[in-house]
């Protein structure tokens, strides 16, 4: 088991945001967690990333507990996150954004190689390498945010609402990229409000409601589940 989240409780200030959540992510999988606003999706990802820590319960990464590990350490050991809303560094160039993504790495040659790889893969980023990231469109920023996270050469890529605020055509592009990344061997943990996409690509999925997991199962199965369809697919 690559990532094992075991009955964690997480506080946001003095309020408990996550009430005992457990799930697993294994090698080669793409897992989706679907939930509405306020369900705790971002809190969950931030806890796994080390930006917050659980008051109870444990998270095991590659068999070892992540207790006490800071965000930088976790990135170094292979967990990267594409935050909600892209959050690119708007005043920095595209190039600097990618460089920042590789902050925890020390191999200068490898970093340069990777940057060129991503410029080839996302030509638009290559074209605008010296432009300020804030000038990119939403979809381009999403690509940049994904590339930035990949710069850390993560084993697990976590994505917080990658389709948020993007036009459907762009969303398709983004999900194509997600499929590609998955094929290349990176394990993906996807967190979405947009259930259709998230469930259709997932091996397994979880439903998160106000800090608790209420359902789990193969993605395709949940897509056909009535209560899920009512709550998230607008049926």
């Amino acid at each position: 088991m690559l990532l094992s989240v075991e009955d964690i409780h997480v506080f946001y200030g003095p309020v408990e945001a996550i009430h005992g959540v457990s799930f697993e992510v294994d090698e080669g999988e793409l897992i989706s967690i679907v939930g509405n606003n306020g369900a705790g999706k971002t809190t969950l990802l931030n806890t796994i990333s080390g930006a917050m820590s659980p008051s109870m319960g444990d998270i095991k990464w590659q068999g070892k507990s992540t207790k006490g590990m800071g965000a930088a350490q976790l990135v170094r050991s292979g967990i990267a996150q594409v935050p909600e809303g892209r959050m690119v560094f708007a005043d920095s160039t595209v190039y600097d954004n990618l460089l920042a993504g590789a902050y925890v790495r020390k191999d200068k040659e490898g970093i340069k190689k990777d940057i060129n790889t991503y410029f080839e893969r996302f030509p638009i980023l290559g074209e605008r390498r010296n432009q300020k990231a804030g000038l990119l469109s939403g979809g381009q920023q999403q690509m940049l945010a994904i590339a930035r996270a990949l710069m850390a050469r993560p084993k697990l890529l976590m994505m917080d609402e990658p389709s948020l605020g993007l036009a459907p055509v762009i969303v398709s592009e983004v999900y194509n990229i997600i499929e590609q990344i998955r094929k290349e061997g990176t394990v993906i943990l996807l967190v979405e409000q947009n259930a259709t996409r998230a469930l259709s690509v997932a091996d397994r999925a979880y439903i998160l409601v106000t800090g608790e997991i209420t359902m789990t199962g193969p993605g395709k199965e949940l897509m056909h589940n009535d209560s899920v369809r009512q709550a998230y697919l607008g049926v």
Binding site: N46, S49, A51, A71, A72, V75, R76, A80, Q81, P83, M87, F89, A100, G101, Y103, V104, R148, A149, A152
Partner: peptide, 8 residues
Amino acid sequence: ATSNLIGV
């Protein structure tokens, strides 16, 4: 916040 997240 984001800087922290990506390992800065």
